[in-house]
C-alpha cells in the first residue's frame, strides 16, 4: 500500500504543478514509512519540503499555501502527533471556505498513519478518527488496499476541500497488489461493498477490514453469509449503501479499532436506528476497541478487535434475531 501512496503523489505532482508535499522527514528520507519515497529527487526541494518539527506549523502553513492557490499534501508522522495541529484544522482549515463565503479555500490533504498492530512505541498507534469526523467541513477517508489507497488519495488531492487521509499502519506492507499508475481516482463519500452476503451486514474501515473479511470467511464456513462494507469515507458517511445492505440482510455489526464511546460506529448505528430500524431482525452490535488508552504493544492485540470477537458478535446477532 505504501508504494501505491507514493505513486499517487507522483502522478498528481507530475500532472498538477499546484501540488506540493510538506511534512517531517518527507524529503530525503521519503517519509518514515516511505510514503513520499523518491518525490523530492523527482520534484525538487521546493515542492517536496521537510518542515521544522512542528505539527501546528505543518497544518497552519498548509492553510496559508492553500489559500494562495497551492494544493498541499501534508504528512503528520503518526496520528498521535496530530493534536497540536487540531487548532489549525478545526478553527481554520475546516471552515475557511465557509467563513469567507468561498473566497479562500483549503484544498489540503492531511495524511497520517492510523491505528496499531505494528509494535510501535507509545502514542504511535492511535485511532482517533472520531475527533476529525465530528468537525463540520472536513472529509475523513481511509483506504484498505493498495488500489484504493492510490485511487482515494488521488481523489482526496483533487477534492476542493480538506481531506483527512488516515492510512492504516498495519496495512502499509500487509498485502501486494498490482496497481496501474493511470491517474484514475476513486469516488469519495462512497462506501465499497467488498463482499456480498444476505444474512448480516458488517461495516468496518481502516485496518479492521482485514479481520472483518477473515471473520466473514469463517462465518461462511458456518453457513452465515456476511456482506462486508468498507466505509472508505468515514465522514460524511455513505448512509445509503449501509441502509440498502441492512434492508437486505436485516442485521448490522459494526467493527472498529477505535474506542467504542462516541465512535464512528455509534453514528452508523444511529443512522440505521433512525432510518432503517424496521428492517432490523436483531439489535445492532458494535465490536470495538475498549474505552481505555491504547496499551503499549504487549497488549495491543488484545485491544484491537480479533476475528474471534467479530465472529462471536455475529453469531450472537444471528441467534438474537426475531
Amino acid at each position: 500500500m505504501v508504494e501505491a501512496i507514493a505513486m499517487a503523489h507522483g502522478w498528481e505532482m507530475q500532472h498538477d504543478p499546484a501540488v506540493v508535499v510538506i511534512g517531517e522527514d518527507v524529503g530525503a528520507n521519503g517519509g518514515v514509512f516511505r510514503a513520499t519515497q523518491g518525490l523530492q529527487q523527482r520534484f525538487g526541494a521546493e515542492r517536496v519540503q521537510d518542515t521544522p518539527l512542528a505539527e501546528a506549523a505543518i497544518a497552519g502553513v498548509a492553510i496559508g499555501m492553500a489559500a494562495q492557490g497551492l494544493k498541499p499534501v501534508a504528512e503528520i508522522q503518526f496520528m498521535g502527533f496530530l493534536y497540536p495541529a487540531l487548532d489549525q484544522i478545526i478553527n481554520h482549515m475546516s471552515r475557511m471556505r465557509h467563513r469567507t463565503r468561498g473566497r479562500l479555500t483549503c484544498p489540503i490533504v492531511m495524511r497520517m498513519p492510523h491505528g496499531g498492530g505494528i509494535h510501535a512505541p507509545e502514542h504511535h498507534s492511535e485511532s482517533v478518527e472520531t475527533l476529525l469526523c465530528h468537525v463540520p467541513g472536513l472529509r475523513v477517508v481511509s483506504p484498505t488496499s493498495p488500489a484504493r489507497a492510490y485511487g482515494l488519495l488521488l481523489a482526496a488531492i483533487r477534492d476542493p476541500d480538506p481531506v483527512m487521509f488516515l492510512e492504516p499502519t498495519r496495512l502499509y506492507r500487509a498485502s501486494r497488489q498490482e496497481v496501474p499508475d493511470d491517474g484514475r481516482a476513486l469516488p469519495l463519500d462512497q462506501a465499497f461493498v467488498l463482499r456480498e452476503g444476505s444474512d448480516v451486514t458488517l461495516v468496518s474501515w481502516g485496518a479492521m477490514i482485514a479481520e472483518t473479511l477473515q471473520a466473514a470467511a469463517e462465518l461462511a464456513d458456518a453457513g452465515i453469509d456476511a456482506e462486508v462494507i468498507d466505509l472508505a469515507t468515514l465522514s460524511p458517511v455513505d448512509a445509503a449503501t449501509i441502509l440498502d445492505s441492512v434492508a437486505k440482510t436485516g442485521r448490522l455489526v459494526i467493527v472498529q479499532e477505535a474506542a467504542r464511546n462516541v465512535g464512528v460506529g455509534a453514528e452508523i448505528a444511529a443512522i440505521v436506528a433512525e432510518d432503517g430500524l424496521f428492517d432490523l431482525l436483531a439489535p445492532i452490535r458494535r465490536v470495538a476497541g475498549y474505552d481505555t488508552v491504547m496499551p503499549l504493544y504487549r497488549l495491543e492485540r488484545d485491544y484491537i478487535p480479533s476475528v474471534r470477537r467479530i465472529v462471536d458478535a455475529v453469531r450472537s446477532t444471528v441467534a438474537d434475531s426475531r
Binding site: E46, Q49, M65, Q88
Partner: peptide, 27 residues
C-alpha cells in the same frame, strides 16, 4: 481578495502568513 479574514484564535494567523509566503516563494 487574497487577504486572510479576521482571525480570532490567537496567533494562528501567523502560520497562514508563513504558508502564503511559502506559496509565493515556490511560485
Amino acid at each position: 481578495r487574497a487577504d486572510f479574514p479576521w482571525c480570532v484564535p490567537i496567533a494562528t494567523q501567523t502560520l497562514h502568513a508563513a504558508g502564503a509566503a511559502m506559496a509565493f516563494k515556490i511560485r
